[in-house]
């Protein structure tokens, strides 16, 4: 299942103005993996993805894509190298039709016949989008917009996809549907996936490997299976309550990584 590393990040530091949002993050993603980055609000997950995809420039550190340094490059160059970022909050083009949104996903590509084939593939994964090709994207529902954002990302023919909170604001049923598609994309198309999530339960279910971020640092890294069974993750991200000897919940719990 896992192959050579496609994405290697070493000691990355990134700032929002004077605020240090990423404080020395290192991680590795191997070919064919689904890697999840978990963390609460403000942990720096989105900043990490934006820095990887080139929308933000890191202050320090290196990012290697297939062994080639990409830190500080413009996002269009990085998309052309086969890494696409599906942003948080369904950033679609609201006044364009669904089909035009999908077409924009292939902006960096010139191979028309392959693009057409991928269009059909996207509509195959998301039949709902095919039915609504002509509809203005801004009028789609939230879940449909999320599917459109993922479908549009696929049109760049990515080898690696950065998904930022695909479950944000969606009903549990839709979350399940979208995660099933993510898994299929990984298995059938061989797309390596970096999945940033607050919803640790669904993320750990699909992921092979997981990182936990807190205030700009990676505090835990292990296989998804181990993380799922870790007491800390269960207590802080999965909401599992541990009964103490007195039969009450302990509110003053300490995380072991601190």
């Amino acid at each position: 299942m896992t192959g050579e590393p496609v994405l290697q990040i070493d000691n990355l530091e990134s700032y929002y103005g004077p605020i240090m949002a990423i404080r020395g993050v290192s991680l590795e993603v191997r070919k064919g993996q689904i890697v999840t980055v978990l963390g609460a609000n403000g942990a720096g997950k989105t900043t990490l993805l934006r820095t990887i995809s080139g929308v933000m420039n890191p202050a320090k550190g290196t990012i290697l894509l297939n062994g080639e340094p990409i830190h500080g490059r413009e996002p269009d160059a990085i998309v052309a190298m086969g890494m696409v970022h599906v942003p948080e909050g369904r950033e679609i083009f609201p006044l364009m039709s669904v089909a035009e949104n999908i077409a924009m996903g292939a902006y960096v590509r010139r191979d028309t016949s392959a693009v057409r084939r991928d269009e059909e593939m996207v509509y195959g994964y998301f039949p709902m989008l095919g039915e609504r090709r002509g509809q203005q994207a801004g009028t789609l529902s939230g879940g449909q917009q999320q599917m459109l954002a993922i479908g549009r990302g696929l049109m760049a023919a990515p080898k690696i996809m950065l998904l930022d909170e695909p479950s944000l604001g969606l009903s549990p049923l839709l979350v399940e549907e979208i995660f099933a598609i993510i898994r299929r994309l990984n298995e059938e198309q061989g797309v390596t996936i970096v999945l940033v999530e607050q919803n640790a339960r669904v993320a750990l279910e699909v992921a092979d490997y997981g990182y936990v971020m807190e205030t700009g640092r990676i505090v835990m890294a292990d296989t998804a299976h181990t993380l799922e069974n870790s007491k800390d993750i269960q207590a802080f991200y999965l909401g599992v309550r541990e009964e103490t000897q007195r039969g009450q919940r302990r509110w003053k719990q300490r995380k072991t990584w601190r």
């Binding site: 995809s53 929308v55 413009e74 996002p75 269009d76 990085i78 998309v79 052309a80 696409v84 970022h85 599906v86 942003p87 950033e91 679609i92 083009f93 609201p94 006044l95 364009m96 924009m104 996903g105 902006y107 960096v108 549009r152 990302g153 760049a156």
Partner: peptide, 13 residues
């Protein structure tokens, strides 16, 4: 013009 950030992510310079 509709969504600058998304355009960036799609590789539009």
């Amino acid at each position: 013009s509709q969504n600058q950030l998304a355009a960036y992510f799609m590789g539009v310079p």
